[in-house]
Design a protein around this nucleic acid. Sequence first.
DNA 1: CCTACAATTAAGAAAAACTTAACTATAAAT
DNA 2: ATTTATAGTTAAGTTTTTCTTAATTGTAGG
Lengths: 324, 324
Amino acid sequence: MKKNRLPPLKSLHAFRYAAQSLSFKTAAEQLNVTQAAVSQQIKTLEQSLELELFERHTRQVVLTSEGEYLFTYVSQAFDLLEQGVKEIIEDPNPNKLVISTLPSFASRWLVSRLGRFQAQEQNIDIQLSPSLAIASFQNQELDLSIRFGQGQYEGLKSELLFEEELIPICHPSLIDMKKPIPPQLAKLPIIADNGPDMKAVWPLFHQIIGTEEPLTPSRLQVSDSTVLIEALLSCQGISMMRYSLVYELIQKGQLISPLPLHMKSRYNFYLVAPAPHFKYEKMLKFKHWLKGEVKEIQASWKQYQKETKGLYEVDFNHISNLED
Amino acid sequence: MKKNRLPPLKSLHAFRYAAQSLSFKTAAEQLNVTQAAVSQQIKTLEQSLELELFERHTRQVVLTSEGEYLFTYVSQAFDLLEQGVKEIIEDPNPNKLVISTLPSFASRWLVSRLGRFQAQEQNIDIQLSPSLAIASFQNQELDLSIRFGQGQYEGLKSELLFEEELIPICHPSLIDMKKPIPPQLAKLPIIADNGPDMKAVWPLFHQIIGTEEPLTPSRLQVSDSTVLIEALLSCQGISMMRYSLVYELIQKGQLISPLPLHMKSRYNFYLVAPAPHFKYEKMLKFKHWLKGEVKEIQASWKQYQKETKGLYEVDFNHISNLED
DNA sequence: CCTACAATTAAGAAAAACTTAACTATAAAT
DNA sequence: ATTTATAGTTAAGTTTTTCTTAATTGTAGG
């Protein structure tokens, strides 16, 4: 055997079980091979190492001192391999689902629905970690991230949850529906959402309502849609909003969309996790449930399209060229 | 892949190098196989685990998070295997040689020569453990046993060092060379060596010097040749001795062999150790040196044969039948 | 002495591992 | 912009390893 080379790995693996049980027969059973195979693998190993690992007796084998010594290493090594493989293919916490997502999505949509999931799945606990930052899977606790983005995350798998639409939103008391809308909107402060999906929106918005784009940013800027919604509800101004966050408030009459326009957002909600996580039972259940819940948003959007006269889509495409 | 089963070990080993170098090409070089082999082994592994361990780019590969995680385990595991194998086939103490041998051989022959070995090999320390008992290699410290025996030791390898001859020995002052020798010897007490090689000697010896074998053992018996030699030097009687132990004393005139006879001993000196030890560099050096030193005994014996008129060999063969 | 048990061996079959040659994608050089 | 270089992929065939089967061996236990 060459120096710094390992002997045949299959032989070492056979040795593991033979040394553990001190029986080639038992080892063969554990390995699902014949006794002869184990006998030959041990022989191969001994020849490879040029030393004897077992003393042979008629009906049993006894480890030599070298055999005993080697077994301590071999045992640990194969345990490590099994552990490593186990950790990447099995769910370490089958009864706990750790989810990271945007605070806005958590508070305005997800939290109020989780009760239904938990009623359905009694043995799965949910841990919700709202975070603006992109959470890392490296700490090994996080199972799933529901992210608002473009669906490409290095080393992770992502599945589209639903597509987002942007519509103008303000408080109903700020608008007199009997008068022309654009002039009224032109007088309202714009509350700018700092989200990545909004960056391209404001120049277009000014163009649409006939105002001159201000040289300075909006006086009120928020980095979280939750805050933005509270600002709108308290009549602070107008903004472009993701439909998923406001459709219920529109249905309740708490907010309105003063203009019949919408934009398809280039950012959408995705389920994001290491690929193996998608195979966990809890993930399969949650995903299935969540897709069902999301149907409500999609149905509501379809209804909104139907009921909104003169609704038209504003295209982003030429705007994106200006950005680059 | 079945639960609690390891993926193909060869694939894991290929993964080890690919993950380490982030190059299938480099891994292939390290494994002495083709790049295609590595590519296929990684693919096999990924299929086995049902997940991706590498993202493929045109001219390189990048580990996925699963791949990175698995690598920590795989790396440790194979390091352990290599370490275990290394420890049982490599010399743990390359600069120290631990030798067990008979006290007589140690004190009368070996000790006085070790200075020459140590002058020649500055970086090898010798630890000499004289012992009548057969030393065990199980404590992992003992490198070599120079044993007096028949060369068969279970689980150990033995190499003949030299063949031993037995001759009658006494102090020169006890014999008048001008008178017939056997009657003088018949009057001397026999100092019996309890060594295994001597057991068959005494009946034959009595026969040769014309005395009746005593019904009781010799009044003086020793279990160590060193003591026996001291007894002979102090004129206590006569004995059969191994030539290797006395040839220098004969040359100095301190002892004589009163009868021109010799017997080939059935016991000889062997180098005995686990087979892997014989490959250690220090062992190779020591063995080579020792064989050179032993040539002196062999040369002296040849000289003794030449100079001893009427020297004849006494055959053991019919005696061995009586013993069984 | 016979039976039961487990390890060994030889020969052949099956599976795994590897090689070769062609292909693919794209980075780098011209 | 085109060509060359590089490294990973794939399919098919070859080689090696691993395994099975059947016979053998040694000996413990009845």
